[in-house]
Amino acid sequence: MTPLQFQAKTAKGGASLLLWSSGLLLLWLLALAAFRELLPATAWAMLLLVCLIALVLAYARLTEPWLVLEATEQGLTFFHRKGNWVLPWQECGLVTVPELNGQELAYIGIRLKQQSPFLSRLSPRLAVALLMEQRNLLLSAVGQNCPTGQCPSAFFMETNPCHVEGKVYKGVIGMFGQRMQTLRQLIGFELYIPLNALSENPQIFCRTINQLRLQYSENTVT
């Protein structure tokens, strides 16, 4: 099977944005030298801030991986600027856009058949990044599941050792394991990919991945 690659939406336009922001900064320097007296210092400072923000955004896009996901005969590989995770087909369950109270979330959800093998492969650096990025998802899920505002504190306790399928995980990996268990309990999935990271239509993407999952996990394709 030729690897099926899904381009990262967040990586697009980085080069053009860098050129545009660099040109804007050059224009600001020329204007400041020629027309300094036309605007107060605060206005020049604000224009400079706009240029710098555009440069930072351009750099952020250029450092994003070109691919967000790759599917091969072996399984899925998710690419992130802090690393990547690998999920063999035999460990991959349903892939879909999850819902909370009838509302679709802005994520692709991946259900795991086993959690321990995934945690054993996950790098601490990537785990930290995903924990931070998924904080709002956790808050939304907890908020939907405790309308009275009196939520179990266990939802937010991610510092204790995590017991998964007979194994104990500590530190950052343990925290991520607890996060996976919490999200599985609240939403039904352990892994999440933001929709804004994908260039493809979410429904088509999920259907394609699920077809590959069924084919390769059942060894129906050679």
Rank of each mutant, 00 (worst) to 15 (best):
S140H: 07
L138R: 13
N136S: 13
E64Q: 14
L130C: 04
T182D: 00
P152F: 05
L112I: 13
V164L: 05
P147T: 09
T159N: 15
R81S: 00
L137Y: 03
Q114T: 06
T63Y: 06
G93N: 01
M180D: 00
T77D: 04
A106I: 09
L119W: 03
L76D: 12
V95M: 06
G174A: 07
V164F: 04
F189E: 08
C146F: 09
V168N: 09
C146Y: 12
L186I: 05
W89G: 02
N84E: 15
E158N: 12
I173H: 07
L67H: 08
G75E: 08
V97F: 02
G75D: 04
K167F: 04
P152G: 10
L69R: 00
L126V: 08
A106H: 04
P152D: 12
N84Y: 12
Q103D: 12
I173P: 08
I110D: 00
Q114S: 13
G102W: 02
V142R: 00
L100R: 00
A141M: 00
R111F: 05
A154Y: 14
L100M: 08
E70V: 13
I187P: 00
W89Q: 07
N145I: 09
F118M: 02
F79G: 03
N196M: 13
V164E: 00
I187M: 03
E73H: 10
C146A: 09
R184G: 01
E190A: 05
M180L: 15
E133L: 13
H163T: 10
L105M: 11
P88F: 05
P65E: 08
K113T: 07
P65A: 11
N84V: 04
G174K: 01
N160E: 15
G83K: 01
C92K: 02
L67D: 04
G171T: 07
E158R: 14
G171S: 11
K113M: 08
Q144H: 12
K167A: 11
A60I: 11
E133C: 02
R179Y: 12
T72C: 11
T72A: 13
G143E: 08
G75P: 06
R135K: 15
